[in-house]
Design a protein around this nucleic acid. Structure first.
Lengths: 121, 121
DNA sequence: GAAAGTACTTTCCAAAAGGAAACTACCCTG
DNA sequence: CAGGGTAGTTTCCTTTTGGAAAGTACTTTC
């Protein structure tokens, strides 16, 4: 009979479980190569069209942009509005909820900048 | 002749470029399914062996754990110390540098918790 | 009526990521 | 000398991710 003798200690508290779940949630929502880039751009730019984003986000292709925008919209972090112009245009904007990510993005940027400095000297 | 007429505006400032690079650096260092989980565990647990981590981090396999630990060590976020015990044991610990990630991890957790609450109500 | 702009979608493919299971190798205890 | 513990590595496989290129569809401008 196989018996596991030791068990998890550190991560076994309710507080830890909630934190682990929360980080997993966050990273799942922000998964993929371009989410932060798109969100950062929309936080700065307020309201941009599809082609604007394609130009702002260097390297992204239309397929990925389209897919990432859909993901972000489904999580209510950005909004998509079709304007009745000629030709019709679409405006993507950060939502109130999406703006709450600003501190998260700031921390990531801050850490990355500090990391660079500590590595190069 | 194909000509691109409009150019990037929002992300074209030096400040933005540095931020974009910094976030990309950070996410590349913390890439993969398990990095935050491992770091979080080591921040809490201070010093754990390979088998301890395998038990703490539910779902991870030894291959992934081994690989992720190597990644983190190569970026000086954790340390690996072979203890001259019988049988020899290995202790993984968070480094001083690794601890600087605590605010980043906290922000991610905080946001994830708030997200859950805003979704369910 | 051709060119260029809007906003995408589709197809096809390559590379990266991740996991289960087995295997190595060494040590201690009963 | 079997069983269980230490710390991994290796193999084989599936899934996921991401990108290039082309296509769709409709409109305005020259």
């Amino acid at each position: 009979m196989k018996t596991i003798k030791k068990k998890s200690v550190v991560n076994n508290t309710p507080v830890c479980q909630v934190r682990i779940q929360a980080i997993s949630d966050t990273m799942s929502i922000l998964s993929g190569k371009w989410k932060f880039h798109i969100l950062g751009t929309l936080i700065e730019g307020e309201s941009l069209g599809f082609m604007d984003l394609l130009r702002e986000i260097e390297g992204i292709g239309s397929k990925m942009l389209s897919k990432e925008l859909q993901d972000l919209e489904s999580n209510h972090l950005i909004s998509r509005t079709v304007k009745d112009t000629k030709p019709i245009t679409v405006k993507y904007a950060i939502t109130k909820h999406g703006k709450t990510l600003a501190p998260v993005i700031d921390e990531l940027a801050k850490w990355g900048i500090a990391y660079r400095q500590s590595v190069h000297g």
